[in-house]
């Protein structure tokens, strides 16, 4: 009950500061841009000119799977960036402005407070990813060729788990410092470290959540869900829970001091 009250307050706030509108639109634009520009690149080059007479520019046209992977990659970069930015002030900003004390002067459980914040953010981001990938799929189907929609849905589900982890990390960092800018900076460092470590030791950490994007590529290509993608998804869920628990613990300890 209490959880629902905080959750509703968060949803309302995100509605007032327009996150419900601009985040999905921005995600859709990110996902759609790459397939379209790739498709029209040869024509753009023709129109702009500057290529010497007789030179043959042969840019290989990607197939449908490669094209939709471009959308996923774009979301994996810029989408993550936007996610970090919209989550950076979610607790730290309230601590700074004093709203945090106001809320917790009432008997509000930390678990409810943190998890409601997490869910409200996750809802926006999941919706945005869904709309973005479906929009990307629409353009890829028009320009490159058809892809099975169930494949896309499955990919979206796994991809969302990666984003849940991102939100978890940002919320955890939120409880450490009070400046939203520093939160974004630290979160990005953690996320980049996760990705760098994974790309170096990828053969050992085959369960790393940062590999979900790669496994989605394999899945789209082969149509078979590998065991690794399940492990990665499981680890993403576990890490997300750990981050949230850690955030709750940090807040509790701060209250005791």
């Amino acid at each position: 009950m209490q959880w629902y009250v905080i959750f509703k307050k968060e949803i309302l706030e995100n509605w007032r500061n327009m996150k419900w509108i601009w985040v999905p639109i921005v995600f859709i634009l990110f996902a759609v841009m790459d397939p379209i520009t790739t498709y029209y690149l040869p024509k753009i080059m023709d129109a702009v000119g500057g290529i010497p007479e007789g030179a043959v520019v042969d840019i290989p046209m990607p197939n449908a799977n490669e094209a939709i992977l471009m959308s996923f990659n774009e979301l994996g970069l810029l989408g993550v960036l936007i996610t970090v930015v919209i989550a950076m002030g979610v607790i730290s900003g309230e601590m700074k402005s004093g709203v945090y004390e106001l809320i917790l002067s009432k008997p509000v459980k930390y678990t409810n407070y943190v998890s409601a914040k997490f869910m409200s953010l996750a809802l926006i981001v999941f919706l945005s990813i869904f709309l973005a990938v479906v929009a990307g799929w629409y353009y890829v189907s028009l320009l490159f060729g058809s892809i099975d929609f169930t494949k896309i849905l499955t990919s979206i589900l796994f991809f969302s788990l990666y984003f849940a982890l991102i939100i978890g990390i940002v919320i955890m960092v939120n409880t450490w410092v009070q400046s939203p800018g520093v939160v974004a900076f630290l979160s990005l460092i953690i996320i980049i470290a996760l990705n760098v470590l994974t790309s170096i030791y990828g053969h050992i950490f085959t369960w790393s959540p940062a590999l979900i994007g790669d496994y989605i590529g394999e899945y789209l290509h082969s149509g078979v869900l590998s065991t690794e993608i399940w492990y990665s998804a499981l680890m993403a869920v576990i890490f997300t829970f750990a981050c949230i628990q850690f955030a709750i613990l940090t807040l509790k300890n701060r209250a005791l001091q």
């Binding site: 500061n17 327009m18 509108i21 601009w22 639109i25 921005v26 859709i28 634009l29 759609v32 841009m33 379209i36 029209y40 024509k43 753009i44 023709d46 129109a47 929009a135 353009y139 028009l142």
Partner: peptide, 29 residues
């Protein structure tokens, strides 16, 4: 020809989304 009707129809949703983004930003401002 680069600019033809097909291209415009194809890009119309993207242009509309951009316009919505611009308008809600201005309204918010």
């Amino acid at each position: 020809m680069l600019i033809n009707q097909d291209l415009i129809l194809l890009l119309l949703p993207v242009l509309i989304l951009q316009l919505i983004l611009l308008v809600i930003a201005i309204i918010d401002l």
